[in-house]
Simulated assay, not measured.
Amino acid sequence: MSGSTPDRNVSGASDIPQGNWVDRWLPASWRPYARLARLDRPIGTWLLYLPCLWGLGLGWQALGAPTATGPALEMLRLVVLFTVGALVMRGAGCTVNDLWDRKIDTKIARTATRPLASGAVTPFAALVFLAAQLAVGLAILLQLNTTSWAIGASVLVLVFLYPAAKRVTDWPQAVLGLTFNWGALLGYAAVTETIAMPAILAYAAGFFWTLGYDTIYAHQDKEDDAIVGVRSSALALGDRTKPALAVFYALTIGLLAASFWTAGLGPLAYAGLALAGLNFARQLWVTDLDDPQDCLRTFWANRDAGLLVALAIVLG
């Protein structure tokens, strides 16, 4: 596909921040790999991690929310494992994505300075780095129960297919939604050794949540994507984006409410969920989809929305 695109850089600010902790604390030889894994841009890790917390919380509720020292320490162990796992697997996903997109990234100013596009990391070195990240992810997965092994391993198919989706469909955000919310299923299974309706409904809610926030994110690049031939829900929806976002977020709240109901959560859970709904409503009200910086700020706001859902589960 890249052979048919113009050999040019499209206007836009680089998405590689400079002068942050990566530059201050890491040796020069490590910095490209930290940026390849997006360690200096934690929002993606948050958005991958939060559905894991939902699944863990719902699973804990299924076991009666034990408060004895032993079960509580086990939950703490799982939270730590999922925290590290989300960090590592988000980095692995970014590495896969950049390997797929390195030629396209050279044609867009915002992504031209990414390590693979700029030549700071070679494709072979990126593959070695990917193998190391996957090895750490496997080591973490093996600390969970055997049911979790199959669930965790199966998501790799989606991780490797997601970068191809933007080449063949207008809805790569849907594939990302299937991928990024897998933790709702995995977290629940890590606690209960099974998958039940509360986890399935939370996973479905997360799918529509991702469809919403990543459509907003894609509006940053809609002009560039149209030039280089990358497809997205932002381009497909165009002026219909705001009504579509309203539907996506309404489904998110509705499915989460159904998840809470089937899990037997108490009234405070719905109060917390209402706060997440207000966050979504504000996103729809204030976001200027033609302003890339505004889209990015709204995208970041979804960390708070996901935390509110996690808090709702704890309160319930």
Rank of each mutant, 00 (worst) to 15 (best):
Ala120Asn: 02
Phe124His: 12
Gly119Trp: 14
Asp101Gln: 09
Thr113Pro: 01
Pro115Leu: 13
Ala120Pro: 11
Ile104Leu: 11
Pro123Trp: 03
Ala125Lys: 07
Ala117Pro: 12
Leu130His: 00
Ile104Trp: 08
Cys94Met: 14
Arg114Trp: 11
Thr122Lys: 15
Pro115Trp: 03
Trp100Cys: 12
Lys103Glu: 14
Leu130Lys: 00
Ala120Tyr: 03
Asp101Cys: 00
Asn97Ile: 02
Leu130Glu: 02
Val96Met: 12
Pro123Phe: 06
Ala112Cys: 12
Ala131Lys: 04
Arg102Asp: 01
Thr95Gly: 07
Thr122Met: 11
Lys107Leu: 12
Thr122Gly: 15
Trp100Val: 02
Asp105His: 04
Arg114Phe: 14
Arg102Glu: 01
Leu99Tyr: 03
Ala126His: 06
Leu99Cys: 04
Cys94Val: 05
Ser118Ala: 13
Gly119Tyr: 04
Phe124Ala: 15
Ala126Tyr: 06
Ile108Met: 10
Pro123Ile: 08
Lys103Asn: 10
Thr95Trp: 03
Phe124Arg: 15
Ala132Arg: 05
Leu99Thr: 00
Ala126Gly: 09
Phe124Lys: 12
Arg110Cys: 09
Thr95Asn: 01
Ala120Cys: 13
Arg102Pro: 03
Ala117Met: 15
Thr106Arg: 15
Pro123Val: 05
Val121Gln: 02
Leu116Trp: 06
Ala117Asp: 09
Pro123Asp: 11
Pro115Thr: 12
Phe124Pro: 02
Pro115Gln: 10
Ala125His: 15
Ala117Asn: 14
Ile108Tyr: 06
Asp101Pro: 00
Ala132Ser: 12
Thr106Lys: 14
Phe124Glu: 14
Val128Pro: 00
Pro115Gly: 14
Cys94Gln: 00
Arg102Phe: 11
Cys94Asn: 01
Leu116Val: 05
Asp101Lys: 01
Val128Ala: 13
Ala132Thr: 13
Val128Gln: 08
Ala112Ile: 10
Arg110Lys: 05
Asp101Glu: 07
Ile104Tyr: 14
Pro115Arg: 10
Ile108Asn: 05
Ala112Lys: 02
Pro123Gly: 08
Trp100Asn: 09
Ala131Ser: 13
Ala132Gly: 09
Gln133His: 12
Leu99Glu: 06
Arg110Val: 05
Leu116Cys: 08
Leu116Lys: 08
